[in-house]
């Protein structure tokens, strides 16, 4: 059994690659060739696993995203 994971979901239809989330969560997100957030976890795609200690920062990123393109799905 793996521990339940929280996921940071990126809504690409809303994301404009403004980059705030990549500054707040540099451990989780880099920027791709065009500035869009790129998960450092390989293959994470649109749902980026968030470790417990980064949950606050992730919430901050959700709140500050100018496009409201982020959603935090807490592991239950």
């Amino acid at each position: 059994m793996t521990a339940p994971r929280s996921l940071l979901h990126i809504d690409w239809t809303a994301c404009d690659g403004r980059g705030l989330c990549t500054e707040i969560l540099p451990e989780l997100l880099a920027r791709d060739d065009w500035g869009y957030p790129l998960a450092r976890t390989r293959g994470a795609g649109s749902d980026v696993p968030v470790q417990e200690r980064l949950l606050d920062a992730a919430s901050e990123a959700v709140a500050l995203c100018p496009r409201q393109a982020l959603r935090l799905v807490l592991g239950t």
Binding site: W12, T13, C15, D16, G17, D32, D33, W34, G35, Y36
Partner: peptide, 12 residues
């Protein structure tokens, strides 16, 4: 034309 990585990546 909705998602940045797709729009940019596919044309690249």
């Amino acid at each position: 034309g909705q998602c940045g990585p797709c729009v940019n990546g596919l044309s690249a």
